[in-house]
């Protein structure tokens, strides 16, 4: 199921670069929802193509955060990937059946008091 914005964000024909080489189309889970993206592209790119903007909420103020630098430097886009928190989604390649979850503080659980 696609969210607002969705696949329209993909560039089909680029005047200079023409087309983009992509891996095979694979399914992955985002907060329990099945989505599709291309294997090997950054997780963040696959999420954005599905209309996902919010990657995590900060621990103190519960502020939403998303992609900011897109080169693995700022760590604003970290999420819980296959159970592991703090994964920089902008530089981590998407794999088939990956389980990607919104991060709350450093956990995948909103109610987690330990954070």
């Amino acid at each position: 199921m696609l969210k607002e914005g969705s696949e329209l964000m993909r560039i089909d024909h680029h005047p200079i670069l023409k087309t983009f080489e992509k891996g095979k189309l694979v399914k992955f889970l985002y907060d329990g929802e099945v989505m599709e993206g291309y294997e090997g592209e950054p997780i963040a790119v696959a999420l954005r193509a599905n209309g996902v903007m919010i990657h995590r909420y900060t621990s103190k103020h519960n502020d939403p955060r998303g992609v900011f630098c897109a080169i693995g430097r700022c760590t604003d886009c970290v999420m819980v990937v296959d159970g592991e928190p703090n994964i920089r989604t902008c530089i981590t390649p998407l794999q088939e059946d990956m389980k990607i979850e919104t991060q709350h503080g450093i956990s995948n659980n909103k109610e987690d008091e330990s954070i």
Binding site: M9, I11, R48, P64, G66, I71, D76, C90
Partner: peptide, 25 residues
């Protein structure tokens, strides 16, 4: 400035020129 949708110019280039994705509309 911390809202999703505020990005660096480099991020825009990375998304559109390497990964073929518009950073925004």
């Amino acid at each position: 400035w911390t809202l999703p949708g505020v990005i660096g110019a480099g991020a825009a280039q990375t998304m559109m020129n390497l990964h073929g994705l518009k950073p925004g509309s």
